[in-house]
Write a protein that binds this DNA or RNA. Structure first.
Lengths: 238, 238
DNA sequence: CAGTGGTCTAGACCACTAT
DNA sequence: TAGTGGTCTAGACCACTGT
């Protein structure tokens, strides 16, 4: 729980201290010390304590009741959906990820992909099709589209690992956020075979547009997930 | 854009002022005035300006670059997924929502539903099955499970409107957040008929557990959405 | 280097909850 | 009414970005 980042600032240290308190025996709905008590005890201002508690509240470790106090939250059933790579995602789910490259190539962006990547329809696109596996069984068939002019030589590299890592280390492109559309479909026979399921089985369709640190679109990816092996968990609030 | 809530506090007024600035002609990636300029101009402290900007940053109206400035963000493709009722959701998508109640009744919770609602498997459950329509066409078949002891008389009421409104006005239960699992399936013939599509069509399966203001589970609902009429948009960040 | 956002202080008063 | 979190002030210094 204690990030290295937590020690960079006072609020991070306050945060770590409160997390330790929670982990060391407090139960859900137990009352935490007041903000003023934390401030006195730790020798910081109340605003700094509030900053730490705001972060913990956002992550659902605590909840507040105005006029009453701050309390330990119930653990959520599962983690909120986050922007993780397939690799990280599978490791977190306790499975061993691997990848098989189906084919790669370049092509014109076309209207649909071009608009998603803010490129001309005539722009050159690098396309990568991969099957992602968990514990050796196919889970997902993904087709990645990238602006070819921004990833020279990418298609000649080893593409079985995390694409995000490659983009960051080789091309200085850091992913900051993504917009996803999640829908459902039934699998065409050819796609079903790649995923090792019967034709016309149910699948989740995920279309993802990834944005980098400069607010520019990086990739547009369409993924088909086997419905029997995958679902999304989302935590939303009013 | 200008909520009534925005005028309750200074930071809300600051927020409205900045939103108006953005809407009145600023383009994405245009630089906003500095935090200190806003503070001087509006006669508030810089912390108050930061509070307003934090909220706008969280909603992706602006983004900050440390050492450089605060900028207008690009409009996102679509709204982030939020905890809205079907009714609100459809109105926002520009469609007219309606509801047809298929059947209602009471039953034992059983292991699966009981655990989702933190109830004994022998507890009494109120079950409501409804088809939700948009512009007259079926979109979703939902089965709601509620702790019967907390919603006396609910099943005798008019159930074609927003259940959340009914829970709030009649039972003092305010929904604060929800955990959702999104998967895919193909429709059984009986369900397909209720949704007016061919048997074995693709559908999204959404299992939702709603939590109230006291962190107690309120409802557990399983919904089947027609894949040809519905998808989820999600904005995620690193 | 000047200017920006990021963090922090030591107070103050308000709004809400319990008793 | 006492105690809590919510908001706000008027400063200060730090970390980072540009020129």
């Amino acid at each position: 729980m204690s990030d290295a980042r937590n020690t960079d600032h006072k609020s991070g240290r306050v945060r770590s201290h409160i997390e330790r308190l929670i982990d060391d025996g407090l139960q859900p709905h137990d009352k935490l010390p007041t903000e003023r008590q934390f401030a006195d005890e730790l020798g910081v201002s109340r605003m700094t304590v509030r900053h730490a508690l705001n972060a913990l509240e956002e992550e659902r470790r605590v909840y507040r009741v105005h006029g009453s106090g701050t309390f330990v939250a119930e653990p959520t059933i599962d983690k909120t959906i986050r922007l993780t790579s397939f690799t990280e995602d599978m490791i977190e789910r306790g499975m061993k990820p691997s990848t098989r490259v189906v084919d790669v190539g370049t092509e014109f962006a076309g209207a649909a992909v071009g608009s998603k990547l803010s490129l001309s329809p005539a722009a050159e696109i690098a396309r990568i099709r991969r099957v992602r596996l968990a514990d050796g069984a196919p889970v997902c068939l993904e087709t990645v589209h990238l602006d070819a002019s921004r990833v020279h030589g990418l298609l000649d590299r080893e593409l079985t690992g995390s694409l995000y890592d490659l983009l960051a280390s080789r091309y200085g492109t850091v992913v900051s956020r993504a917009e996803q559309r999640i829908g459902a479909t039934v699998l065409e026979p050819a796609d079903a075979e790649l995923l090792d399921v019967a034709a016309f089985s149910a699948a989740l369709v995920v279309e993802r547009r990834t944005i980098d640190q400069h607010q520019r679109p990086v990739e547009f990816t369409r993924s088909l997930y086997r419905a029997d092996r995958y679902s999304f968990l989302i935590d939303i609030e009013r």
